[in-house]
Design a protein around this nucleic acid. Structure first.
Lengths: 226, 226
DNA sequence: ATTGCACGGATTGTTGACAATATGCAGTGT
DNA sequence: ACACTGCATATTGTCAACAATCCGTGCAAT
């Protein structure tokens, strides 16, 4: 039946995780009204934990709830998605700077190793944008935690990335330009290895700015539907 | 027919507001364990809404909760407080830049007017640091919303400011230098009025950086206890 | 004396039932 | 035919009882 060992801490956490992944993977369409009982049956839970999870998700901006009317997945417009990238630009720039100042040598070596594995994945499975997207996520994740800035990492990992990933699934192609992105990642790590925080910040901002412009172009070309 | 006054949307919202203000005002000491039943009696509520509010606050990083052990107000170290200002620096810099691009002329005029009233408050009630703190909060609040960046405003107003204010109450004196801060505010608004986003970003970053250094100095001098 | 362990009490997590409110439909009037 | 009103239903918000888990205390053993 179910997994013999439930590693989840509590029912509410379980509901939170299930809901979050369901939203990110697009199983719950934005704007669609979702009933609590539907969710309970879907995840084999009761309304208590589900309600608590809904509250948490709402607080994080993934859901919008009207007092007695129900709860809907937030629908982000194209303009708002681009605004999200503007925020990422400054916050991840800061993360890169602080990572250059604070990451241990071991962490940097690890980061370089993961870039190698990402390159291998891109080489052998060309067109497999999914792995590239995961690799990209992994890279930014490490930089955020490497900043040793608790709140910064919390905001990036807890708020922004989930919202961005939610649209990654919809854009299907990660950002389209795996090789170029990998090269930019390499240069950022180089700057971090040299403990050049200022350069790392600059390169990271430019990297995310390029990704934003890429999306902007696709929107203008009508390749993305909202 | 005009709706009279919405006392509160829902019990959970009420609990959320009460708890948030109680935490910000320092009525609930950081690190102190708070029982759910205590809170219920304190606010005349039942455990359901209180639990939902606790979940939301935890998700925003104001509380920390261990599975069956209870909930505590988050205790932020001096180092983490300074990290918070580093985040504010880049985020509010972006907010100032976008505000310069997007605020209406009326909003800018309003902003200048509030600065005048702040100046009057400082002049007549010298030493009344409380009003200066509120004025400072008001200023940054308007810039954040003026950016027209929904998520950015949400993160600043919903997450960061409450955490900063929580320590403002403890530091008693806002940042100590009302006149100088006011002058910096004036120059930022000037840049916004001239639609010079780049300058507004630069000035805002320098403003917050100065505030951070001010706190850092106080910490070194042992004027602040944690 | 200190450490380990077990047990009782208290607190939290969860559940199901009850109350309040919004949505949809039917009916009526213009 | 359309708009408005009133009611019925379903869904949400709230409550109080039940079950599971942790913490502190006391005792015993080394």
């Amino acid at each position: 039946m179910n997994a013999p060992i439930t590693l989840t801490q509590t029912r509410a956490d379980e509901a939170f995780d299930c809901l979050q992944t369901a939203i990110v993977k697009g199983e719950l369409a934005p704007g669609e009204k979702i009933g609590e009982l539907d969710l309970c049956e879907r995840f084999n839970l009761t309304r208590g934990p589900v309600r608590e999870a809904l509250g948490r998700l709402e607080s994080r901006g993934l859901l919008v709830r009207r007092p007695h009317a129900g709860v809907r997945v937030v629908s982000v417009s194209a303009a708002e998605l681009l605004e999200l990238y503007r925020i990422r630009e400054v916050m991840e720039g800061l993360a890169a700077r602080q990572a250059a100042e604070r990451m241990t040598d071991d962490e940097i070596a690890d980061l370089q190793a993961t870039l190698d594995s990402h390159e291998a994945m891109i080489e052998e499975a060309r067109g497999q944008a999914y792995y590239q997207a995961e690799g990209d996520y992994d890279f930014h994740h490490r930089i955020a935690t490497g900043s040793r800035n608790t709140k910064l990492a919390q905001m990036l990992l807890g708020d922004l990335y989930y919202m961005v990933r939610m649209y990654r699934y919809r854009l299907s192609t990660s950002s389209g330009r795996p090789h170029r992105a990998l090269g930019e990642h390499r240069r950022i790590v180089e700057a971090i290895a040299q403990r050049d925080g200022e350069l790392a910040e600059f390169l990271m901002k430019r990297h995310i700015n390029a990704a934003r412009q890429n999306i902007e172009r696709k929107i203008e070309q009508g390749e993305i539907s909202f």
